[in-house]
């Protein structure tokens, strides 16, 4: 699967952009949190596409945001 870049993303319809990002993010998140991957991906997809692209390129950023999302998720479910 070729890497997703900003140009490729911008050429996709707006609705499809989130889908493309989600399809890339989900397996990465699933590796760390198999049970919460769908929810976490859903939360992260509400962020800007620019930030999501950055997270795909930077595992540190992704992990930081995933940790944040889990904290929010747990607070919400409590």
């Amino acid at each position: 699967q070729e890497p997703l870049d900003a140009t490729m993303l911008a050429s996709a319809p707006l609705m499809d952009q989130k889908q493309l990002l989600g399809e890339r993010l989900y397996p990465l998140i699933q590796a760390y949190h198999p049970n919460l991957a769908g929810k976490i991906t859903g939360m992260l997809l509400e962020m800007d596409n620019t930030e999501l692209l950055h997270m795909l390129e930077s595992p540190e950023s992704l992990h930081a945001k995933v940790d944040e999302a889990i904290a929010v998720l747990k607070a919400h479910q409590a």
Binding site: L14, M15, K18, Q19, G22, E23, L25, Y26, P27, G38, K39, T41, G42, M43, L45, E46, L73, H76
Partner: peptide, 22 residues
């Protein structure tokens, strides 16, 4: 009250409908 359906869940291969305003 909190929306119990939040956050919207992403499923691979299923069209994403999480965002209301796009």
């Amino acid at each position: 009250g909190n929306n119990i359906n939040w956050p919207p869940e992403f499923c691979p291969g299923v069209p994403w409908k999480g965002l209301q305003n796009i």
